[in-house]
Amino acid sequence: MASISLEDVEYAAELARLDLQPAEKEALVDQLGRILQYIGKLNELDTEGVEPTSHVLTIQNVFRKDRADEPMDRDDALRLAPDASGAFFQAPKVIE
């Protein structure tokens, strides 16, 4: 049955930018492993010829008209940001 390794947890944490302590990683190996095992039960079903489900709702084709309207106030937006400078949002530098 499905299980998850310490490396899997570390890889997923890296992708999610999560800084995990060793004890947290251990706990996640166990917890995520059990989640996968539980979900893995679905594999016992015969799904031959069944289209993959991407949405559980039966609605389709919900659209907005191509009409431009007032934008949001910049100062309001910048005030909500963790960091801003002048007219810009500010983030830690991403290239050296």
């Binding site: 983030a91 530098k93 991403v94």
Partner: peptide, 16 residues
């Protein structure tokens, strides 16, 4: 769009 600060400032500015 990102603008990377020149020189010492260790930040990038974002225009959405």
């Amino acid at each position: 769009k990102l603008i990377h600060a020149e020189g010492g400032a260790n930040v990038s500015w974002v225009d959405y």
